[in-house]
Structures are given as C-alpha cells and as structure tokens.
Design a protein around this nucleic acid. Structure first.
Lengths: 231, 231
DNA sequence: TCGTTAAATTAGGTATACCTAATATTAATA
DNA sequence: TATTAATATTAGGTATACCTAATTTAACGA
C-alpha cells in the first residue's frame, strides 16, 4: 500500500539524474552523457550505465552515442523535483529565516525526502508563489512553468533602468557578493556604463555606483522598466 | 570541507539502527539482535552484520550471543535523531497544519535529510518545545531528556481526575481513535471505572463517558491532578 | 577515404545493505 | 548431564550505484 502523499518511488540518484538532464536539455537537446557526468560529478561509465537503466524504465530515450531526451514521464518527474526544490528554498527563506545563499544544499537534501503533501502545504502557506528567492520560476503542480522574458545585465544598453528578475547561480560566495550590492530579484537599478569586449558593468543601486565583472553581471537577468528614472 | 550545519555522515540505515537500539534499550539492556530485527523489520543475519560494522565504528558495544549497548557516541547520535524527529513532528503539526496521526512517516524521512541548523531554526520558531504533539519528550541540544512521572490509564484508581501527558503509539488508526474521544496530551479526564483483569476502562471527557479497551488505555499516560473536580 | 581524436560504451571490480540457508552457541528441560 | 529449542552468527548470494581500464563508435581534417 503506497504511502499517503508519497510519489512514485525513485531513488535519490535517479531523481538527481532527471533533474540534471532537465536542466541540461534547456541548453541543448539531446543531452550528451558526458555533460550529465560533469553536472553530477560522476564518471562517464557510471552515467552510461544509469542512462541505460533509466531508458529501460521509460524515463528517458537514449540513442547510443547520440544522447538522451526525457520522456513525458521523465519530464514530469523532473519538474516535480524542481517544484519541490524551489518551494523548499522559498519556504526556508520566507518562513525560517535562511539566507538565499545558504538554502540550496538544504533543499537539495530535503527535496528527496519531502512528501507531495508537505510541499503542497508549504506552497499554500507561502501563497503558491510563482518564483523562488533567486527568481527561478516554480513549476506548478500541473507541470506548467512561467516563462519570463529577461536579459542579462551584460546586454542592457547604458543609461537604462531595469528591474532584477532572476539571479542564475547557486554559489554562496557569488550570491552573498550580489546581495551585498543590493542586487536581488525585485530590486531596481540603473545601468550607468558597460565596457565592450566582456568588460565590467557599472550599475547604480540606490545612491551607490558598483562595478561588476562581466561574468558576474551575466548572472543577473533583468527586464527594462517603463520609465528611465533613477531610484 | 564539511557542510555548514551538517552532522557526522551516518547512512540512513545506521541512523535507523541507532534510533531503534536506543528505544529498545529503554525497555531492556543489553538489546537482543532479534529485537532489533523485529523493530526494523529486517532479517536476523542483516542485523548481525550491521551490528558488527557499528561496533567496529565505535557506535555500540557488542558481546556476541548476548546483545548490544550504545556507546556514548552512539547514544549521542541516537538522541540527535530523536530530537530531529520530534522537532519535525511538532513543527509539522504546529506550523503546517498536519494532524498528529499523519506526521510520523513524514518526520521519519525528513529526520535523515534535515541539517542541524534547520532543526535548530524550527525549534527556535516553536519556542524550544520540551514535548512533541504525542507528549514525547524532545531531547535538548545538549543531550538531556526531560523525565516525567506518569502512569498508564490502566493503573489509575477509579474516581480520579488526571491530565493526559503522553500517548505512546504512532499508529494513525489508534491516534485518530483517541483524538476523536478528546484523548490528547493536555486534556483532563475523569476515570469513572476500571474493570479488573485487563478489562475496559470508562473515562469521562467533558460531558461524555467513553469506554476504552485495556490495550488502548495502556497507551495513555497520565498524571493525577491535585483536585478531583470533573472538568 | 583514411586515420586520428574525442566521446561513449562495455568489461570487470568495489562498497553497502539487504536476503536465505546452514551452522554455531546458549539456555532450558528431561 | 545430555538433549533440544531458541537465538545468533557465518556463509554465500542479490541489487544498486559507483569506480577504472579497455574497447568501440563517430566525426573531422589531411
């Protein structure tokens, strides 16, 4: 008899594979096994073996020497994991006072253990949020994912005012660095200047001007605001 | 580099063994391997094997053919698990609206995944509770456990008023049954009558008289209240 | 088109944690 | 004390998920 609130029993490993493949498929599809190996820090043969088992289970389709794609079942499972992860991160930050740079590993472990009903109760308590603290969209229970148009700071023309929508890193050091500058989702900033050829970007947050390296600025996704007023 | 808030990495299985041995040792010590096997629903040889590995790791002392006892290290780990479990149960009930009969399996899975710092944040949010929703004492971070004198309903003399302190089962059906009667920790009841030789017990809760089978009544631990007034 | 290289797979092996069947030890009884 | 029954352990085997080393396949440039 299956547990109340339980989900199809996939092992931790399998859940991690599906999540990684989903993410990688957003960049390029089919996904190369070597990319999976790199993402999960595993050897290539380990991934080959697991990929074979997962396709036998109907979670993904594998064309040997070509790559893998998630089946509908595999994608649903991956989206479920992503939902769990992002609801957990949001809950930890909103309700338990964790900082946005510290929640990733905690959510990474809890997402395998939390039941569907726990996640839905957390979501309800949070008012069914559509985005997590990093601005990542939270897949809804029906599998839909909000798509938001955004541009990295490195592509915004100088002299524009933008709202930060999303920060695409889970590295604590970088998250702390950005938060120190006030560069978190929802905040408004004015792009003062941008050096060509992958040079630094100067932004004004509040009254302060900050210089961001190109790599850092590329992680900050924004949307231009209507006016051009300085906050 | 160990994780922030992480604990010594013990596997799920090991954590379950230590928890079970701790509980069993409260009844009788040393603990028989067959009792561990029964508690964890494993074969006797599986337990023999694991017991050997755990004693090699210094988590318990094993005298072959006699039984096992936790070492200090083993006891600390077990108390840690118990704390995690009970904080989690309390949090799920108090903050997320779970019912007291449904939290056990959820906590059983989360206790292996939650970091020390998550548990301490939950405890703080709850005001560092000393007891969980079933009245079980929550081991404190320093390893101390509140001891409360209590008697099962089956040993209370008729015509006395008692407060329920604890209900010692995790079976949902029984918990729901008792909750229906208003028999939860903190509630006051009047023991109307008690049949000898393991017969049923009649209690009055509010205005209603309820008859409880002996087995059920034995799960309800109480403390006599000063007066003898009927609530 | 042939050879070289990069990528992927297969072969074979390890650790954990379980199992059943067989054996050993202890404790209770005749 | 010898036998028996209960308890525990050892022996040997399975599944999962990882590893390294060896091999195969595909793709690309000479």
């Amino acid at each position: 008899m299956p547990q109340v609130g339980a989900r199809p029993a996939l092992s931790r490993s399998v859940e991690d594979y599906l999540k990684a493949i989903y993410r990688l498929a957003l960049q390029a599809s089919p996904v190369a096994t070597s990319d999976i190996a790199q993402a999960l820090d595993l050897s290539a043969p380990s991934v080959s073996g697991m990929v074979k088992r997962l396709s036998e289970q109907g979670l993904l389709e594998h064309v040997p020497y070509k790559g893998v794609e998630l089946t509908d079942r595999g994608r649903r499972a991956a989206l479920g994991m992503l939902r769990r992860h992002r609801i957990l991160e949001t809950y930890l930050v909103e309700k338990l006072g964790f900082t946005w740079d510290s929640v990733h590993p905690e959510a990474e472990r809890l997402e395998h253990a939390a039941s569907e009903s726990l996640i839905e109760r957390m979501a309800l308590t949070l008012g069914n949020p559509a985005f997590d603290p990093h601005g990542d969209p939270i897949p809804q229970a029906d599998g839909s994912v909000a798509e938001v148009e955004s541009m990295p700071l490195t592509e915004i023309p100088p002299n524009s005012t933008v709202e930060i929508l999303r920060v695409v890193t889970s590295e604590p050091k970088r998250l702390r660095y950005l938060a120190e500058f006030g560069l978190t989702p929802g905040s408004i900033l004015y792009l003062v200047d941008r050096q060509p050829f992958h040079g630094p970007v100067t932004v004004r947050v509040g009254r302060k001007d900050r210089v961001l390296g190109h790599e850092m600025a590329a992680l900050v996704l924004c949307r231009p605001t209507d006016g051009d007023q300085i906050a």
